[in-house]
Design a protein around this nucleic acid. Structure first.
Lengths: 182, 182
DNA sequence: CCCATGAACTTGTCAATGACTAGATCAGGA
DNA sequence: TCCTGATCTAGTCATTGACAAGTTCATGGG
């Protein structure tokens, strides 16, 4: 892969990674296409060729996020608790992707790549819910998704007070279990 | 209250309301201080006097949100299910406040007004958890908060497929109940 | 009655940004 | 060799956030 010269070589991926860095450091407002271009050593208009505009870049991020989530869920298998913990792991390991994915107004949610990846992840979630509780119905599936999504969101927002160094997945385990046991 | 002349009369509230409108319509990126100023009929720098900068305005929004949440929780009483439904009701009735509140990077989370309002709402949540499950412990409280927060977030993100016209609180009831019954 | 003081708002300005257009460079195939 | 499309550059414009300095207004002390 070339890194100098007229053609960058892999500008799309470079800019995408730089965006994750920048958003992770400064939040969803603290970044600009021009800053990413400077960081990649290309002209200020180069990113536009790959993503069109800011929303286009976030669209690509969301699609990648749903893909990563689907892959994480697939590896976790059909166990309800394991799937929930995998969900939390994905969110805490890819906080920027997670944050963008569930703010559809930031990107083009009807984009084909996004839609396909989202459906794939959704199917895995539904499959896990059915396997764990065959007679559970829609509400059981929603309860599982809600508690995992809620824990992950609160964790990322810093709303949960925990000892420093605590692993989010370890913290999530007893919480998610509350939905299964009594 | 005067609405014309050199002094607007209640510019702070007007701008805050306009911000909620704008963010609700176009998302967290689709607004500007200058647009709000134009909408309020004042100069482009007038909002800065009240909020300092963009983050200042969002800080005010977050503080107001935590206040509204605390009031909603207070009215709901100590019943676990009712508190959870009140949480969902708050989120769906004030989606912009809710969205800002749990993205601390967007505003100054260490602001005094925010901190006080946040602590007030947090105390009510903890109190509800203790009343419902005296021996439940931290994890039970977190499970309740997570499932309510998660359902609300997924609802606002449009991630849940429901019949048009469905009331979010009605949809949440059987879901939240899954945490209480088996 | 008058003025001092501070709050509320305006005007002017600047660098930075997103988006657009036109053009240059490059790679690969006919 | 030449052609075509993909990739990137250079230039431009309206808009924005932030800041500085000045103006208007309300209020209370003397």
């Amino acid at each position: 892969m070339r890194t100098i010269g007229y053609h960058h070589g892999d500008l799309r991926r470079t800019v995408l990674d730089a965006a994750v860095d920048a958003i992770g450091a400064s939040g969803l407002d603290g970044w600009s296409l021009r800053e990413l271009a400077r960081r990649a050593g290309v002209s200020h208009a180069a990113p536009a060729h790959h993503f069109g505009d800011k929303a286009g870049l976030l669209t690509a991020l969301a699609a990648e996020g749903f893909d990563l989530l689907a892959e994480t869920l697939r590896q976790a298998g059909t166990d309800f608790l394991e799937a929930g913990l995998a969900y939390v792991r994905f969110a805490t390991e890819h906080p920027v992707h997670f944050g963008v994915m569930f703010q559809p107004k930031l990107y083009r949610a009807d984009d084909d790549a996004v839609r396909q990846a989202r459906d794939r992840a959704g199917a895995l979630l539904a499959q896990g819910a059915r396997a764990a509780s065959p007679a559970g119905g829609e509400d059981t599936a929603r309860a599982g998704w809600s508690i995992a999504h809620g824990f992950a969101s609160l964790w990322l927002a810093g709303a949960l007070t925990v000892e420093p160094g605590t692993d989010p997945v370890d913290a999530a385990r007893p919480v998610l279990r509350r939905l299964l046991e009594r």
